[in-house]
């Protein structure tokens, strides 16, 4: 059955059905009563979009913490370490909260599977979280500085992986708007992570130390923007949910906040030292963090939309089949498994 316009509202019901014929015929495709082919994820946006954002914030913050330690920015280092530990703890809580059986979380640790990004990620985060905790604890108490240095170095090494694996997590699904973006999604996510971590540094550290955070945030904002642009350009019609509806709205909010935050952060050194500069820096930092979060929520909702509408599953697959020139009716003989060839004795 060919898909028709979505179910009409009450006012449209009163009109005759024939009047609903669109002037320009839409791209038609067949579906079963317009029902989705895929099952949309059962994940809650608060938990899983939040998980994507917090994982990025943590991973980026660990890099920022290492940079702060190397350049002697104590306050920034503390803020970044606290941010990393806080974010990863919250993200773990979100992951557990989203399980249908939270008490069985430890079942994640009964196997290690490279074919499951969630398994890889759970092990990664299980290693990262204690290190992040140590780094934060030693920074605030001042005890065991060598252990703190080692922990900070460890989190800086694992941080980029924590920030990028979540892109594989969502891309390794049949959800069209996620899977089709698998090449650029990790770059969108790591750019977003740098932007969020830099934003946190700008928000939390004194202006005298925030230059490092500013550079990271600006680089991240540009990277996220470029990667996202490239991704949606390549995806064709599957990129629609990133431009329309709930996903599109979040993406646009993210773009506006990112542009405002980046402009504010870039101009902040020109603001007179003192309260005014502190306010500009903090507001810019908050905007950059908000931009990163909005992007994650946008990606999450775009994926949900693309899974719920059979169009995004059927049309690209049908085009793929047509390009391959596959006859619509399989020749029956092609389906019979051929016996293995027996080489001459």
């Amino acid at each position: 059955m060919t898909a028709t316009a979505p179910a009409a509202g009450a006012s449209r019901w009163r009109r005759k059905r024939r009047a609903e014929q669109p002037m320009v015929p839409k791209a038609t495709f067949s579906s079963y009563y317009g029902k989705p082919v895929l099952k949309a994820p059962v994940w809650e946006s608060r938990d899983i979009a939040g998980y994507l954002f917090l994982g990025g914030l943590a991973g980026g913050s660990s890099l920022l913490a290492a940079g702060a330690d190397l350049t002697g920015r104590t306050e920034l280092g503390r803020a970044a370490k606290a941010g990393a530990f806080g974010a990863i703890t919250l993200s773990l809580a979100a992951l557990i909260d989203d399980l249908g059986r939270p008490a069985r979380f430890v079942n994640m640790l009964r196997v290690f599977k490279v074919t499951s990004p969630m398994s890889v990620g759970t092990w990664l985060v299980s290693g990262y979280t204690p290190a992040a905790g140590l780094a934060a604890a030693t920074a605030f108490t001042g005890r065991w500085p060598r252990l703190g240095t080692a922990a900070t170095a460890g989190t800086a090494l694992l941080g980029p992986a924590v920030a990028s694996y979540t892109a594989v997590l969502i891309s390794d699904t049949a959800v069209p708007a996620w899977h089709d973006g698998y090449r650029e999604m990790p770059f969108v996510f790591t750019g977003s992570a740098a932007m969020a971590a830099g934003g946190l540094g700008l928000l939390a550290a004194p202006t005298a130390e925030s230059g490092l955070a500013r550079n990271l945030a600006l680089a991240g904002q540009v990277m996220e923007m470029l990667a996202f642009e490239r991704m949606t350009r390549r995806m064709g019609m599957v990129a629609e949910p990133y431009r329309q509806g709930r996903g599109g709205a979040y993406i646009r909010i993210g773009q506006v906040l990112g542009a405002l935050g980046a402009t504010g952060a870039a101009l902040s050194p020109a603001v007179p030292v003192g309260r005014a500069r502190r306010v500009v820096t903090a507001v810019s930092g908050a905007a950059l963090m908000g931009a990163s979060a909005a992007t994650r929520w946008g990606v999450f909702h775009a994926g949900m939309t693309s899974a719920r509408d059979p169009k995004y599953t059927v049309v690209p697959q049908r085009e793929r089949l047509n390009e391959r020139g596959t006859a619509k009716v399989e020749p029956a003989s092609a389906s019979i498994p051929q016996p293995p060839p027996v080489p001459p004795a």
Binding site: G59, G60, L63, L64, A66, G67, L70, T71, V114, P117, P160, A161, A163, S164, Y165, A167, V168, S171, D172, Y182, R183, E184, M185, P186, F187, F189, T190, G191, A193, A194, L212, N215, L216, L218, A219, G220, M223
Partner: peptide, 22 residues
């Protein structure tokens, strides 16, 4: 496999980006 490669490249890029900004 390609996804993991892209994620690895993105992680390395993030590391490089951070190093450059520092």
């Amino acid at each position: 496999p390609s996804m993991w490669r892209h994620a690895g490249a993105a992680a390395a890029t993030l590391g490089g980006l951070a190093a450059a900004s520092f």
